[in-house]
Design a protein around this nucleic acid. Structure first.
Length: 435
RNA sequence: GGAGGGAUGACAGAGCGGCCGAAUGUACCGGUCUUGAAAACCGGCGUGGGCUUGCCCACCGUGGGUUCAAAUCCCACUCCCUCCGCCA
């Protein structure tokens, strides 16, 4: 949630920043007007409440002084004022609810360095990395045997069974088998081990309450993109960001504890409403995938370093896996609701000949902390909202695809990077099937 | 799923219709004393909101209700603990 006090204090600056994201000035004017109305009603209600409190106090006094008739008189006056107060309070609540509903739909202010743009086509590429780049090698070229899509490789080697997944849960619910399933497990272990020590490992629930979804900004705006279990009032988490951000919800943290850094691997569920067609084949876009997330609560001063650390870790994993990737800064039109700045990592996958998003590293400022009410105690004893940062390191479905495509050999087998050997029982080759 | 008990400030723990935003203890901060520290003593010590910045309002698990007045009474829900049942 944006800072209402800031909107009051510097309306033009806030409007200008949000206009970059397509929020109209009139929307913000409506909010300002509602805010004025709310405060007016609030003052009215509180003034009445103060009178009722004072009269009630006097009733008590009169009773103690054994003056029941005076007490009854005061009580009657107070009752009448109480009725007025109830009306005033109801009007105040209605306005407050309306104001909050509108405010919850307003996205975060983009950071100044976020480029303007309409959609993902306007994201700006910042750099690329590939094996041997430091030694002056050019961008990798790919052989014909690497130009095979992962769904074909998966079927050929018996390591990805999309038909079985579809049979069980419908399309876009992949099923990995044999060495494919083991590779997925290896990737999670590999990443979590590298984050161990610096980030506390968490294994959170896979479902979350509506309130928890509100804190990250996934609700109310993106309800259609998520799986709901209505009977129990739960939502399937689209990312571990959801539970991690709410870990200390409503708490005041000791500044000395910051930054608090956590990591979690979870299944991530996404309905991706309306998505269909060419971009959805194989593992390009699925309803369920595993992902390791990195997360930190920090002070505003620590945020930049925390953000950089997550990005460096995500890149470090890609480099260790020897995958070609590029770093993009998202433009205003592609930025997530809660984010002030997001950097995406995309790996190049030669079989499908596409760049695939495998990580999104975001700085939220105090936007999520305001919703989740996570604060810290500063040196001077006052409280301030924390900043939250997070990023994937990494989303495995697309990494899986990029790995089998990149490392497919001329004989059809796949030779995986040696860094995974400890997690694959030393066996880094996925062999062709025996005929 | 059944029966019972509980939820109050950082923690422990009183209060069970009327100056209670809340005793007391611990912790924490400042001071006195001390060569220094400890002890002792004195003082301070929740969060949020509104505006005329001094005052007002709200908050005792959550949401309703009763009342002139609710931490305190009533109803519903959530969570925790104990016992029984079921169960990977």
């Amino acid at each position: 949630m944006i800072d209402l006090a800031q909107l009051r204090r510097e309306p033009d600056a806030v409007k200008a920043a949000l206009a970059r994201r397509g929020v109209s000035t009139s929307t913000m004017d409506e909010i300002l007007e509602l805010d004025r109305e709310h405060r007016r009603l609030l003052q009215e209600a509180e003034a009445l409440r103060a009178q009722v409190n004072e009269l009630s106090r006097q009733v008590g006094e009169a009773r103690r002084d054994k003056n029941p008739s005076h007490a009854d008189e005061l009580a009657a006056t107070s009752r009448a004022l109480g009725d007025l107060e109830r009306e005033a309070r109801e009007a105040t609540d209605v306005t407050a609810t309306l104001l909050r509903e509108k405010l919850l739909m307003i996205p975060n202010l983009p950071a100044p360095d976020v480029p303007d743009g309409l959609d993902e086509n306007d994201n700006v590429e910042m750099r690329r990395w590939w094996v041997g780049m430091d030694q002056g090698a050019g961008l990798p070229t790919y052989e014909a045997h690497q130009r095979v899509a992962h769904w074909d490789i998966g079927a050929e080697l018996g390591i990805l069974d999309l038909e079985a997944g579809a049979k069980l849960a419908g399309s876009m619910f992949p099923l990995y088998r044999g060495a494919g399933a083991r590779l997925l497990r290896a990737l999670g272990f590999f990443a979590l081990d590298r984050h161990m020590g610096d980030y506390e490992e968490i294994r959170p629930p896979s479902f979350a309450l509506t309130e928890t979804m509100m804190s990250t900004g996934h609700l109310p705006k993106s309800a259609d993109d998520m799986y709901a279990i209505e009977r129990d009032g739960l939502w399937a988490i689209p990312t571990a960001e959801v539970p991690l951000t709410s870990m200390n919800r409503g708490e005041i943290l000791d500044e000395a504890r910051l930054p608090i850094r956590m990591t979690a691997q979870t299944a991530c569920f996404r309905r991706e409403a309306g998505a269909a067609g060419r971009d959805t084949r194989g593992l390009l876009r699925v309803h369920e995938f595993d992902k390791v997330e990195l997360f930190a609560y920090c002070t505003p001063e620590q945020a930049e370093a925390a953000h950089a650390d997550i990005l460096a870790r995500a890149e470090g994993l890609l480099q260790a896996l020897g995958l070609t990737y590029r770093v993009l800064i998202l433009c205003t039109g592609d930025l997530g609701t809660s984010s002030a700045r997001t950097l995406d990592l995309e790996v190049f996958s030669p079989g499908v000949d596409r760049w695939l998003e495998v990580s999104s590293v975001s700085w939220f400022g105090d936007f999520q902390a305001r919703r989740a009410n996570v604060r810290y105690r500063t040196a001077d004893g006052s409280t301030a909202l924390v900043h939250t940062v997070n990023g994937s390191a990494l989303a495995w479905a697309r990494i899986w695809a990029a790995l089998v495509e990149t490392y497919r050999q001329s004989d059809g087998s796949v030779a995986l990077p040696e860094v995974l050997a400890p997690y694959l029982g030393g066996q880094t080759t996925i062999p062709t099937r025996l005929r």
